[in-house]
């Protein structure tokens, strides 16, 4: 087996299968360079593992929890506002619907009155045509002109 840092580190982390581990062990018994390498790597790993954990600054938990409480309070404070705006929105929607109904209704009414006027006008025109025809054909002698419009009388 040749010298391999990769295998040495895997050996150190106990990541090798049993046969490979045995081969590395045999190699280490004969290779002082790899033994020194492994010793250094182990020393470094131990150094890293034994560095004491930094102590969090005092009051860190209180600061974090304070932020969370503030956030919760903000949410509670916002909730009625949301309801208010929702209420405004709903009220506006009802008012808009009522307005729309009124507009549509009145336009229908206007349309109905327009139809009535048009019908009356058409009837008047028809009546004028009839009286004019009677006069032209000479049949006006048998007509009671008292009922005819003033402009159509002979």
């Amino acid at each position: 087996m040749r010298c391999s840092l990769d295998l040495l580190l895997a050996y150190m982390d106990d990541q090798l299968s049993s046969p490979v581990r045995d081969r590395v062990r045999h190699h280490l018994a004969r290779c002082p360079v790899c033994r020194a390498e492994l010793a250094q790597m182990r020393a470094m790993r131990e150094l890293l593992a034994t560095v004491p954990a930094p102590t969090p600054p005092p009051g860190l938990v209180e600061t974090i929890v304070g932020h969370v409480r503030f956030r919760e309070a903000e949410q509670v404070r916002r909730r009625p506002q949301v309801r208010f705006w929702q209420g405004c929105f709903a009220g506006g929607a009802v008012a808009a619907a009522a307005l729309a109904m009124w507009l549509v209704g009145s336009s229908w009414l206007e349309r109905d009155s327009g139809v009535a006027a048009a019908t009356a006008l058409e009837a008047a025109v028809q009546e004028h045509i009839v009286y004019a025809a009677l006069l032209e054909t000479g049949a006006g002698d048998w007509v009671d002109w008292a009922w005819a419009p003033a402009g159509d009388r002979p």
């Binding site: 840092l5 990769d6 580190l9 050996y11 150190m12 982390d13 106990d14 581990r21 062990r25 280490l28 018994a29 002082p32 033994r35 020194a36 492994l38 010793a39 250094q40 790597m41 182990r42 020393a43 470094m44 790993r45 150094l47």
Partner: peptide
Amino acid sequence: FYARRALREELRPYLDAVGEWPASGASSAS
């Protein structure tokens, strides 16, 4: 692997003081 190799190079002056471990010690991989 690369992190350890790089760190070992950086710390070599400190790690050189580590004596060679006996061959039997290497067998106790953890």
